[in-house]
Design a protein around this nucleic acid. Structure first.
Lengths: 344, 344
DNA sequence: TTGTAGGCGTTATCAC
DNA sequence: GTGATAACGCCTACAA
């Protein structure tokens, strides 16, 4: 199990130099003669010297790595965001460490502690569905850990945030259903504690109100685990279907909820969109091959990821403490497909 | 940006003890008096002391973390495997660091170097589609880094491996199509360099042969990027459709290829399964809501992940060098859905 | 221009 | 039972 990459010390003894000379030579210091530099660099290259990042982290307290916490990587939205983050990180020579909370508060706390103790230079996070308070993050933030929130953000920490225009996305989705002639539009969404929930809920209600309809709380179902537990979604759906005025359309608020709802409706042999239409927030790359193809509110996930990482780098590399923070709101796109087209 | 968690030294000065006494007390050494231990532990708890993992890594050369390289996390198979790995890792108090090669050899090399230089205790990897040689991994392995391969494995490194029974999965998928009466069965798969490709190809050919059919190379299409580039799949599909004896069924060899092929066939307005039937390797959780629902060879991904991590821990924690290696082959399951049922 | 020494936080060894 | 010291690999004042 021993694993001995070449170190500065090895180079020093081999070349009869001191460790510090080698260190400086490798970093191209002008204190060092060209000849020595050439020798050292040649030797280092030849023996494939790589500085030990662990030692560098310990010394510098910085690691050139960024921690990410998302609820679930098995989700096109988050994996696309991560790809956006990664593309910028690569350019700037940062590494990313991906972890999943799986919608569990406990795991979110554990992951945040672990990442910070591994000296990540910053933390990018979308809160878990279970998270009610963000004290764990406040503590890290107060200690100086740069944090960028995205998607599921909190007002309790003043830092950069990147979100989609959830209000508008929800408004457009609901309006589209209204235009198609649907009137009893239900909404299945995540716990109310999540920012995306209230933003999307407001968009939904505003669209109804603007169409002269009264939002009806019986048509609104919150899933405490954000769709991670299928039974929960089934329960919500069953309750909707048992209403006297059964909904003629459903607007689902997240990737997981959208696919689960579609799947359940099909299991229940409910025709979409004939009996119930469906529109969902989703970045699934398969939405067009679903049965029926799914009308989707799509977030610019890749671009979100890039902007998230841009902001993170600004936080990390800023010479002076950053005091003014941005909340970037990116546009969504409504992709209309079969699941929401009213049959004649 | 400064970030000062409490250290052993802080405890030592506060309690007028030496650093080493504190260190021993925290680890419950019996050299230390109960009183001192109690004091130290109380103080540590009170001030929320956490050992610095970076310093521990530097000192011990071990990090209690495992690196993972997969081509793409945006894929139900890999994310399920990762969840399996993670579940065991959590129990054993290991952390996992997930990276993506995105089917690029260069990124696979870069990620493997980065992970090893961050002192991961082991590396779990499924090779990228571009990878032709594994010298980068051989080097790390020779230096003592424990490696476990899964899914896309190599014969060139003697270590533990976990794969699905790709031959059998492919054999069953092809046999199923044959039983349904399809005769011109095409196969779209990954580059030949990948172990899964030849295993699945052999299963496919064996099923044809056992049915008295001669495998026809014109019906076999290799996609060099494993489906990461849609144009490549489109090209393969177009060529198949232009054959004089156009296939009446297609068997796709991976998650990505399966969904892309389904999507392309629909774009081309080719009726499935009436004009062309489709069976694919996929762990997509949405296969049942595809249009049509997709007959799938499903791998026991979660269980694979657990076994992978079990084997990894065995490698890491074994007192003596491990010299006998396992290749675990797990069973696949054929889930028959609409896309492969021959219409009357 | 090069070298020495000390420190980052932890731990192992050895001395008191 | 406790403490001093060195070491992990790197970096950086400061000394030579």
């Amino acid at each position: 199990m021993n694993f001995h990459p070449i170190t500065i010390k090895d180079i020093a003894t081999a070349l009869h130099l001191s460790v510090s000379t080698v260190s400086k030579a490798l970093r191209g210091s002008h204190e060092i003669s060209q000849e020595t530099k050439d020798n050292v660099i040649a030797y280092a290259r030849e023996h494939n010297y790589k500085p030990n990042p662990i030692a560098q982290s310990l010394k510098r307290g910085r690691s050139k790595s960024i921690g990410i916490i998302v609820c679930n990587i098995d989700n096109n939205f988050f994996s696309q965001v991560i790809n956006g983050i990664e593309s910028v990180a690569r350019q700037k020579d940062y590494n990313i460490i991906i972890t999943q909370s799986r919608e569990s508060y406990e795991r979110e706390v554990a992951n945040s502690l672990h990442l910070s103790s591994r000296s990540v230079d910053g933390l990018i996070i979308s809160l878990s569905a279970e998270t009610r308070d963000v004290d764990h993050l406040i503590r890290l933030h107060q200690k100086g850990l740069p944090i960028v929130f995205f998607d599921r953000v909190t007002d309790e920490i003043a830092t950069h945030k990147v979100i989609a225009d959830n209000f508008k996305g929800a408004y457009e989705a609901t309006s589209h259903l209204l235009e198609q002639g649907f009137r009893r539009i239900a909404h299945i969404t995540s716990p109310f504690s999540l920012s995306i929930t209230s933003e999307r809920l407001q968009g939904y209600k505003a669209a109804l109100a603007d169409a002269g309809l009264q939002p009806d709380d019986r048509y609104i179902k919150l899933c405490e685990h954000g769709g991670m537990i299928q039974e929960e979604t089934r329960q919500a759906l069953t309750e909707l279907l048992q209403l006297k005025d059964r909904p003629d359309a459903i607007f689902t608020a997240s990737d997981r909820l959208s696919t689960t709802t579609l799947s359940l409706l099909r299991q229940m042999q409910i025709a979409i969109p004939r009996e119930i239409a469906l529109v969902g927030f989703t970045n699934s790359i398969s939405a067009d091959i679903f049965n029926p193809s799914l009308t989707a509110v799509v977030q610019p996930a890749l671009e979100m990821g890039q902007q998230i990482m841009d902001l993170m780098i600004e936080l990390i590399e800023s010479k002076h403490p950053v005091t003014s923070f941005q909340k970037r709101v990116l546009d969504t796109e409504l992709k209309i497909r079969d699941s929401s087209i009213r049959p004649h």
